[in-house]
Design a protein around this nucleic acid. Structure first.
Length: 803
DNA sequence: CTTGACCGGGG
DNA sequence: GTGTACGGTCAAG
């Protein structure tokens, strides 16, 4: 029988000591598992010069036992493969089971006749996706017969699987959930899905809302959670930080009550180790934890420096919820007060996660299908893995041998010896500027790599007749231009496809599905192509090439400097420049921009292009404590009055709300040319602080405890505050975020720190000196104000220098 | 200046 | 699981 469906997950099982690949496929009607029993594990062994025959004979005769495992190579194919610059004959050695691969490698690694062993550490399921060129969660075609099973899921004995259109991607059907936990017990669990929202509660009382369901006790709550997870119709199960929190709590509570943690319908939730963390794998569903993806990928496009659900949702989808204080959640539950509010808070959390997922999951899916990884892996990826997975997939197609991962020793070595000059920064002269045009290079590094053929396989190529020599410091690197390199060829395709899609998008209505799909695809292309440069200099990369990375930044510096020179020649004032962007100012900036853009672009090679990113009415630039122009710290005022603030403290959570509010206000007033007003705002806040007029709410500072307070060697305010609270009977454990106030009792800051709950006064001096002054000084010293003036101690002087 | 500890998200 | 993967900041050395 033949059918089509979206391949959304893959893993292997061992049956009768043979590996079986299981493909999870969602067809229009149901989810099926297609089972492939024919895929064989292998690795490559490269013989030394002239030793091929000897080696092959020895390998064929090899038989050994390890921990009861009888291991032998049961067949060897000879292949030709490209190894960076040379073509080599390699032996493709097949074994019976994936776990034999590392054992075989260990056994033969010191053999005289072997020059190198390759591709021995590519997980079996990934190998399958790569070799079959499958791109989850896009559409595949499968052929096979149904197998009789007693389970709920239909199984197919796979005869053939083929990738269809990789742009035909699974439509996610999302269930979001969220736990409320008090004293390490689950007291509420909320669910949100289209047409289904529910809050399970263990405490019995009259609840106003119909979504509340009373379940009596924690054990019944867990049973009901299990029931909902199993029986609701959905493909994606999601939440925020569910790997590190919700799923772990659930596992512990299921354990405690002696219930099997089975929620996928036919298998236990598995915790897969990924570096120092674990990821919860639910077979039959796609468990997407939004947080790791937000923190590695989405965060780059965000202004917010904190990545809590609320701030992220606010920026990504423009929505947030009224946050409930942690202490209030606890209080509400302990006193059984306001439980309706607590339930609605719980529902809002999963609703928000759901809305965020509606936006982010399609991005993850699109990236998955481009890279060829499962969505499960993609949402937990690092940039290094993203690039490397793609490279391995492309290497297989181009018959290139995958380089081995560096050893720990090599990684250390690369880290210490591999530092090199980065991007060029044109430091801003502090102050206010009018009429600003912001130009930047479209995909600067990718286009440099393509236009100059920067690639590990083009580097120092012997006998090359057309070399590009790049001087970096004392070194000269040469890149052969005769043949397109591995990286440039890939990047050219990625960048060109993205340009084409963006063109296509202009013809489409923004609300159409086609537009959204295209948007996500071009976004995935952008994420991937922008990651290549970093990958070349990433110490754990298989295709590490410090020389290529160095050459890329060198060329980048040259291009941005050339841009700055040309701008100056044309009489434009250069305000600030960083890596790939320049801020230019001129009275008649509107007229000059077009001419400038045309001139620059006529001189740029190949795919390279400088683009006008935006025009601003006014901009504010500041400098660092050392008196140099501050990088990446500026505030811009758009023509429509909107503010764009970059790099200032006001977004960070380790500052008190009053400090953040004050800084934002000051920046706003400064940009409106009301410097004196800004100064007065600071003075007013300081006065209020002195009088004790600022509510404690605005003075809280948040920090998380990562271990038990008594285990800290250093005296930090949040630790000391926690210790004092514990003495008073408060329960605070590792992982808790404490909010504290610096009070006026005690000598050192640590002595003065008290959990908000136990604080009834504040140390005005501290908040003025350590919070308000530093954040406002950062802005106002540019206009000649000194610290003592801000404190109201000195006279004003030189105020109009910049106004 | 280098090294090592700490921290993120969640309740 | 063809295992054992972050990156930035800040105080201490």
């Amino acid at each position: 029988m033949e059918r089509e469906g979206h391949l959304f997950d893959i893993f292997y099982t061992t049956e009768k000591d043979e590996p079986v690949i299981n493909l999870y496929i969602k067809t229009d009607e149901e989810v099926v598992i297609a089972r492939d029993t024919d895929f064989q594990p292998y690795m490559y062994i490269i013989p030394r010069e002239g030793k091929k025959k000897d080696l092959k004979r020895k390998l064929e005769g090899l038989k050994f036992e390890e921990k009861g495992d009888r291991i032998k190579i049961f067949s060897i194919d000879e292949k030709k493969k490209k190894d960076l610059q040379d073509e080599k004959t390699v032996l493709k050695a097949y074994v019976k089971h994936p776990r034999h691969i590392p054992k075989l490698k260990e056994k033969i690694k010191d053999w005289e006749d072997i020059a190198q062993i390759s591709e021995y550490d590519i997980p079996f399921y990934k190998r399958y996706l790569i070799d079959k060129q499958l791109k989850p969660p896009s559409k595949v075609y499968v052929k096979g017969v149904e197998i009789e099973t007693d389970g709920e899921i239909k199984k197919i004995a796979l005869e053939d699987v083929e990738q269809k259109d990789e742009k035909d991607i699974l439509e996610p059907d999302i269930l979001a959930f969220d736990l409320e936990v008090v004293d390490e017990k689950v007291v509420m669990c909320s669910f949100y899905k289209k047409g289904f929202n529910k809050v399970l509660v263990t405490y019995e009382q009259d609840y106003k809302e119909e979504y509340v369901e009373i379940v009596g006790n924690e054990k019944k709550l867990l049973r009901r959670i299990q029931n909902i997870f199993r029986n609701q119709d959905y493909t994606v199960i999601t939440g925020y930080n569910t790997d590190q929190y919700d799923f772990k709590v659930l596992r512990d509570r299921f354990d405690e009550h002696g219930i099997d943690f089975e929620i996928g319908g036919h298998d236990e939730v598995r915790f897969k180790r990924r570096g120092r963390n674990y990821a919860a794998k639910v077979r039959g569903r796609i468990h997407i934890d939004l947080y790791p993806f937000v923190s590695t990928v989405i965060s780059r496009t965000l202004d917010s420096e904190t990545l809590d659900l609320n701030s992220v949702a606010e920026e990504v989808i423009g929505k947030s919820k009224e946050d409930m204080e942690w202490s209030d959640i606890k209080k509400s539950w302990e006193n059984k007060e306001n439980l309706d509010m607590l339930a609605s808070y719980a529902l809002k959390d999963s609703k928000l996660a759901h809305e965020l997922a509606e936006n982010i999951v399609p991005q993850i899916f699109s990236l998955s299908s481009l890279i060829g990884m499962t969505p499960f892996d993609t949402c937990r990826t690092s940039y290094g893995q993203l690039v490397e997975n793609y490279l391995i997939k492309e290497a297989a197609i181009k018959n290139i041998l995958v380089p081995n991962r560096p050893t720990q020793y090599q990684i250390k070595d690369r880290r210490t010896s591999g530092r090199f000059t980065g991007a060029f920064v044109y430091e801003p002269e502090k102050g206010l500027y009018e009429n600003i045009a912001l130009f930047d290079f479209k995909s600067l590094y990718p286009t440099i790599i393509v236009s100059h053929n920067i690639s590990p396989d083009s580097l120092e190529r012997e006998g090359c007749g057309d070399e590009l020599k790049i001087e970096v410091g004392d070194e000269v690197y040469s890149f052969c231009q005769e043949e397109k390199g591995f990286f440039p060829e890939i990047l050219e395709n990625l960048v060109t496809e993205r340009y084409n899609i963006k063109k296509e998008m202009k013809e489409l209505g923004k609300k159409t599905q086609a537009y959204r799909n295209n948007y996500n695809r071009q976004n995935a292309l952008k994420i991937l192509s922008n990651a290549f440069y970093g990958y070349m200099g990433y110490s754990s990369a298989r295709w590490y090439s410090r020389e290529s990375a160095e050459a890329t930044t060198k060329l980048g510096r040259d291009y941005i400097k050339k841009t700055i020179d040309m701008a100056e020649e044309m009489g434009l004032e250069v305000v600030y420049g960083d890596t790939d962007s320049v801020f230019l100012s001129a009275e008649n900036i509107g007229e000059k921009t077009e001419e400038f853009g045309k001139k620059i672009n006529s001189e740029l090679p190949g795919l390279m292009e400088l683009e006008l990113e935006g025009m601003f009415k006014r901009g504010f630039f500041t400098y660092t404590n050392k008196g140099k122009g501050a990088k990446k710290k500026y505030a811009l005022l758009k023509n429509n009055g909107e503010l764009k603030i970059t790099g200032f403290e006001y977004v960070r959570r380790d500052w008190s709300p009053i400090a953040k509010e004050t800084q934002k206000k000051v920046l706003q007033q400064v940009l409106e040319r009301d410097v004196e007003g800004a100064y007065n705002s600071v003075k007013t806040v300081i006065e209020k602080l002195k009088k004790g007029d600022i509510p404690l709410e605005k003075l809280k500072i948040y920090t998380t405890l990562t271990k038990r307070p008594e285990n800290y060697d250093t005296k930090a305010p949040h630790v000391e505050a926690a210790k004092k609270a514990i003495k008073k009977g408060e329960k605070i454990k590792p992982g808790d975020t404490v909010d504290y106030i610096i009070t006026n009792r005690g000598k050192t800051i640590s002595e003065k720190a008290q959990i908000t709950k136990y604080a009834d006064n504040y140390d005005a001096e501290y908040y003025i000196e350590k919070q308000i002054i530093p954040v406002s000084e950062r802005v106002l010293k540019v206009f000649g104000y000194t610290t003592s003036q801000l404190k109201g101690e000195g006279k004003q002087s030189g105020l109009d220098r910049f106004s």
